Amino acid sequence: MEGGCAGASVFPLFDAPVTCYIPRMPNNTDVAVYALTRQGLILANRLAIELGGTVFAARRIAEGAGVQPFDSLPELVAENFLRFSGHVFVAAAGIVVRCIAPHLAGKDRDPAVVCLDQEGRFAVSLLSGHLGGANDLAVRCARVAGGQPVVTTATDSAGLPSLDVLAASRELEIGNLDRVKVVNGALLDKQPVQVYDPEACLGLAKDALFLPVNHQNDWQIGEPGVWVSWKEDCPDPEALRLYPRVLMLGVGCRRGVGRDEIYSHVVNVFEAAGLSLRSVAGLGSVDVKADEAGLLEAAADLGVEPVFFAKERLDAVDAPNPSGTVMRRMGIGSVSEAAAILLSKGGSLLVEKTKTRTVTLAVARRK
Rank of each mutant, 00 (worst) to 15 (best):
A205D: 13
D197G: 07
D156I: 12
Y243A: 07
Y243E: 03
G250R: 10
Q118I: 01
A154F: 02
S229M: 12
Q216G: 15
L204W: 00
G132N: 06
L163A: 00
I174L: 03
L188Q: 05
V114Q: 06
D178I: 09
K231W: 01
M248V: 05
G185W: 15
G175E: 06
T152R: 11
V183Y: 14
S162Q: 11
L187Q: 03
P198Y: 10
S229R: 12
G185Q: 02
P244H: 08
P212F: 13
G147I: 07
L172Y: 00
K181N: 06
L177F: 12
T153A: 06
C234E: 09
S128Q: 05
D233S: 08
S128H: 13
P149A: 04
L211P: 01
L187Y: 07
V144R: 08
P212V: 00
W230C: 11
A123R: 01
V151I: 15
V183R: 07
T152L: 15
L163E: 02
G256E: 12
T153H: 06
C141N: 08
L202Q: 05
V195M: 03
P212N: 09
G203S: 14
H215K: 15
P212A: 10
V226A: 04
R245M: 13
P198A: 00
L177H: 04
Q216K: 11
C234M: 08
A112H: 04
I174D: 00
V150G: 05
L166P: 03
P111E: 01
L242I: 03
S162T: 11
V195C: 01
V228F: 08
D189Y: 08
E119L: 12
Y196N: 05
C253I: 13
T152F: 13
Q148S: 12
A239V: 11
G132W: 09
A112Q: 03
A158V: 05
V124L: 15
D189K: 15
G147K: 10
H215G: 03
K231C: 11
K206D: 14
L249M: 04
A154P: 14
D236N: 08
E232Q: 13
P244E: 02
L242Y: 06
Q148D: 02
G185V: 07
E232G: 04
L188C: 07
R179A: 03
V139A: 05
G147L: 11
E171F: 07
C141Q: 04
S229W: 09
L172H: 06
G159H: 10
G159W: 15
F122T: 14
L187E: 02
G129S: 00
R259T: 08
G185T: 09
P149S: 03
S162F: 09
R143N: 04
Q148W: 12
N184F: 07
T152S: 14
V251D: 06
T155K: 13
E171Q: 14
R140S: 10
W219N: 03
E171K: 14
V139P: 00
